[in-house]
Write a protein that binds this DNA or RNA. Structure first.
Lengths: 218, 218
DNA sequence: CTCTGTGAACATCTTCACAGCT
DNA sequence: AGCTGTGAAGATGTTCACAGAG
């Protein structure tokens, strides 16, 4: 299998969401055109994305919806439950912990950590906030593969390294700085400051009359 | 001025963060190499990004730090305060409202709206949660240009249209679906489900031994 | 001699357009 | 006839490598 683009993967995740919805309402088949309309892209894009993983469409008809749905879940690795630890028990951590897209897709929060003694011990759903000193042991014991890093920028790199040593394999970072990924750890960052400033730039440079913008769809 | 790439803008925002920090510690000049190291990119990339807006570097020396900083603030439209309304008073809205990168960069929250009667009237910093029926009048009165859309997927498009009619010019969307941007409105989306599933994909496909990943930096 | 600014090469992503399966 | 799968073209983004300013 040749290298699959990052952007294709992001779209697969989106396609899956719509396949779930269409499947729920009983649709059995869907064309690249129809799926593209839902996901806000083009039919060619949908076909290219899917064809990277084989050809499971039916010419003249479209894609078998339940089959495609199953295949995407498999491709995205959503068939198995992923255990997640949240590091940083602030508002962002809280928002993610209760985000429906989290639990719905098999991501289970098994631990929450924060260095603030005032927060340690408080309940977050079914888990209690712990000290980060517990991380190393917990990650191993609970077999957590994913960590959400929602700590201040100044301690993010240190925490990332701690997580890496503990055995975490993938990290979703919300600290607004670039992190150097330790060997063997996949780091994905979400930087809200950047998003906001991209909007500010667009406002400053497109002002009097309209213009469009993207990321996800237009 | 020729079209500037989306990705350049995102990096400018990052560069500015580090320029702020270096300026604070008294540095007066910085080379593309040094800035690249901080921002996790290459010197060529830094120079390409900056050269799109003119040539304000000094050959043999680097860039005048305060000057560059001022120029970036100007380019990103951060010299003027931006008034922001938050639609959806859930956890995500709350996380953003208290996010330091928000206030620090001149984004001021002037209103919070939620359809849930139980939330209406509660205090969020200096503002009270209002009904979305107040949006149209408030956006005009407060001259809000940016909205943060943190509502459930099902009502996001409707709210976006309401915001557009109210006169909002830019929207940062957290609902996990693509939105059709009304004419004259810039929509930027952050989809955490996609980020998470991209990690899941990477875990499923890079497992036994290491591999890297990106977005913001590796 | 250092470090910028930039054309040219390269790589990646998107769109087009059509051959060929059903 | 309808719709997929895919090469080829086009667009966008990144890296290289060097001429030339300071």
């Amino acid at each position: 299998m040749k290298a699959v683009g990052e952007s294709s993967i992001r779209r697969l995740s989106l396609y899956l969401r719509f396949l779930d919805a269409e499947d729920a309402r009983g649709r059995r088949t869907i064309s690249s055109e129809a799926l593209a309309a839902l996901a806000g892209t083009t039919s060619a894009q949908v076909r290219k994305d899917l064809s990277q993983f084989g050809s499971f469409g039916i010419r003249g008809t479209g894609y078998d919806l339940p089959a495609l749905r199953g295949r995407l879940r498999e491709i995205l690795g959503l068939e198995r439950e992923r255990r997640v630890v949240i590091v940083g028990a602030g508002k962002i951590g809280a928002a993610l912990a209760q985000y429906p897209g989290f639990g719905d897709r098999g991501f289970r929060v098994v631990g929450v950590y924060d260095a603030d003694p005032a927060k340690i011990g408080s309940r977050w759903g079914s888990v209690r906030v712990q000290s980060p000193t517990k991380l190393a042991a917990d990650v191993k014991r609970l077999d957590a593969q994913i960590a959400v890093l929602a700590v201040p920028a100044g301690v993010a790199q240190t925490m990332l390294e701690l997580l890496a040593r503990a055995g975490v394999r993938a990290v979703l970072n919300f600290a607004p700085i670039p992190l150097a990924a330790p060997r063997g750890v996949i780091v994905q960052s979400v930087n809200m400051a950047q998003e906001l400033e991209a909007l500010s730039y667009a406002l400053a440079h497109a002002p009097p009359t309209p213009v469009r913008r993207r990321r996800g769809r237009d």
